[in-house]
Amino acid sequence: MSLKFLQRFNVKDRLLGLIVPLFVLALWQGAVSQHLFSELLLVPPLTLWNTIIELFRSGDLISNIQVSLNRVFLGFLLGGSAGFILGVGMGLSPVINRALGPLVKVLQQVPELAWMPMIILLFGIDEFARIFFIAIGAFYPMIFNTYQGVSGVPEKYHELARVFDYKSFRYLSKVIIPSALPSIITGIRLSIGLSWMFLVGAELFGTESGVGFLMIMGRQMFQIDVVMAGLVVIGTLGLIINTLLKKFEQFVLRGRVSFDGGAA
């Protein structure tokens, strides 16, 4: 992995990429030491680093990360699988597509966050409300991409399945899903990305645990270092999740150089 990375970007290129971060860091440190801003509004980079380490050591960070990851996972599982099942159904059956397609399209016009007050009215600000909200975020990319993939299975593969007498579950698992897989995986990637985004939204509406909770507490107690630490953690975890998902995608789609099957 690291070898491949080095091949793509040589050392000089990677040093170029460090210019902006170092510049920002210098500007930041400079602003702090010149007392351009109050320490309340901008802590020195080193203080931020110490805060992160401290939060780590005390175990606060770890336990809150766990809670947040758990929420994302459950929300994605709920919304993602609903989107997947409906997407497959709509992709395979014109009847289901006609019945559900327009409804989904209309609902999709509503920004996800606008549902949150309604969800809170229905369920109260509890764990289920948060997970349900994340599930809404995870639902759309999954149903959309699964539908695209399944309805886009080339006619030639349908024919092949008929010639070799593939039916029902075998047809689905051996032909439809593998053929739609690149699109489905894109759906999973977007879906988890949005789950992560809406996790933060869900937690800002009020919670007593999670990375978002750390940030709310930081804000209320005017500890800007904690708020920034939360931001760093959210960004880093997002980056890690995204990288892992890309690796996962490469692994699952290995061997498929051209998806149309080469010369065809």
């Binding site: 030639k156 593969y157 053929s179 099957g261 080469g262 065809a264």
Partner: peptide
Amino acid sequence: GIVFQDHRLLPWLT
């Protein structure tokens, strides 16, 4: 058995 003009091999299978 059938052999199509495009080989119609499934790209996700070996």
